[in-house]
Simulated assay, not measured.
Amino acid sequence: MNQYSLNRKLIQSVGILLGLGIAFWILRGLGILTFIPGGVIWLLLFGAIGIGVFSYLQRRWWRF
């Protein structure tokens, strides 16, 4: 797996996690998905931020 393929997959995972987190947050606020705990939504959002930072660092400091 080369650098661009890995970075593309990381960016796609950021988008997916961020999209799910925002969608769950909105649907929970509307009262549709009330059974999802707030901690799960925060984990999705913080996971997206963490993967985004890792993707940036991986692209910036790629040595091979």
Rank of each mutant, 00 (worst) to 15 (best):
R59V: 02
W61C: 10
W42C: 07
L33P: 00
W61M: 08
I16L: 15
W42D: 10
Q58H: 15
G39F: 07
A48G: 12
V53D: 06
L44A: 13
G38P: 00
R60K: 11
R63P: 15
G29P: 12
W42P: 13
G19Y: 05
I22E: 02
F54T: 04
G38Y: 09
S5L: 03
G19V: 06
Y56T: 00
P37V: 00
S55V: 00
L17E: 14
I36H: 06
L17R: 05
V53G: 09
G39L: 06
W61V: 03
Y4K: 02
R63G: 13
F35P: 00
L10R: 02
F24L: 12
I16Q: 14
L27H: 05
S5M: 01
R63E: 10
V53N: 09
V40D: 00
G50F: 02
L33T: 09
V14N: 04
L17Y: 08
R28D: 09
L6P: 14
K9D: 13
R59N: 08
I36E: 04
I51A: 05
Q58A: 10
R28Q: 15
G39K: 05
L45W: 01
Y4M: 00
L57P: 15
S13H: 12
R8I: 00
L20I: 15
I49H: 06
G47D: 07
F46K: 11
L43G: 10
G19K: 07
K9L: 15
W42F: 10
G29K: 08
L33F: 12
G38K: 11
I16G: 14
L27G: 07
F64R: 13
T34Q: 08
L17P: 15
F64S: 13
V14E: 08
A48W: 00
Q3Y: 06
S55R: 00
A23V: 13
Y56R: 01
L17M: 14
G31R: 02
S13M: 14
L20F: 15
W25A: 11
W61G: 13
V40H: 03
W61E: 12
F35R: 06
F64A: 11
I26D: 07
G47S: 07
W61Q: 05
Q58R: 06
W42L: 11
L27K: 08
K9T: 11
R63W: 12
A48N: 08
F54E: 06
I32M: 09
V40K: 03
K9F: 14
I16P: 14
L33V: 08
F24I: 11
L27E: 01
F35K: 05
A48M: 04
S5V: 06
I22S: 04
N7Q: 01
L27W: 04
W25Y: 14
N2G: 04
S55E: 05
L20H: 11
W61N: 12
R63N: 12
W25M: 10
M1A: 13
L20E: 15
N2T: 00
Y56M: 04
Q12K: 06
W25C: 10
A48L: 07
